[in-house]
């Protein structure tokens, strides 16, 4: 169950060429991403994980969902995705996560949306 420790077969250090954190903190787990230009090729040196990630974002999805579908650790997916944003392959659509709270308009919209469900 969630919360239990277990061993991962993926080694973040290797997959991300030694970086443990994104170079820029622009991609969070709830960042929505989509491919920028489907025709733009990746460099031959791109890892399989980066290719898989780019393919996964053929349509709009959050980083967390892409990571889960590809069974990539969230941190690894985050680093790969920020690289793909930097290289112009991916577009981050949702607002960049900030330390602040969602504004009143957003909160009201969330409340209205939930009320429509209940």
């Amino acid at each position: 169950m969630s919360g239990e420790y277990h061993d991962s077969a993926v080694r973040p250090y290797v997959l991300t060429q030694g970086r443990a954190r994104p170079t820029r903190n622009t991609v969070g787990l709830d960042t929505l991403l989509v491919v920028a230009d489907a025709g733009k090729p990746l460099p031959p040196s791109a890892t399989r994980q980066a290719r898989d990630l780019l393919r996964m974002f053929g349509r709009l999805l959050s980083l967390a969902e892409a990571a889960a579908h590809l069974r990539l650790p969230l941190s690894v997916a985050g680093i790969l995705a920020s690289d793909l944003v930097d290289s112009g392959h991916l577009i981050a659509r949702s607002r960049i996560p900030e330390a602040g709270r969602p504004d009143l308009t957003t909160l009201q919209e969330v409340l209205n949306g939930l009320r429509r469900l209940s």
Partner: peptide, 12 residues
């Protein structure tokens, strides 16, 4: 290997 903790999530 690296020790990990799992988290589950959903979407509306």
């Amino acid at each position: 290997t690296t020790t990990t903790v799992a988290m589950d999530f959903g979407r509306i």
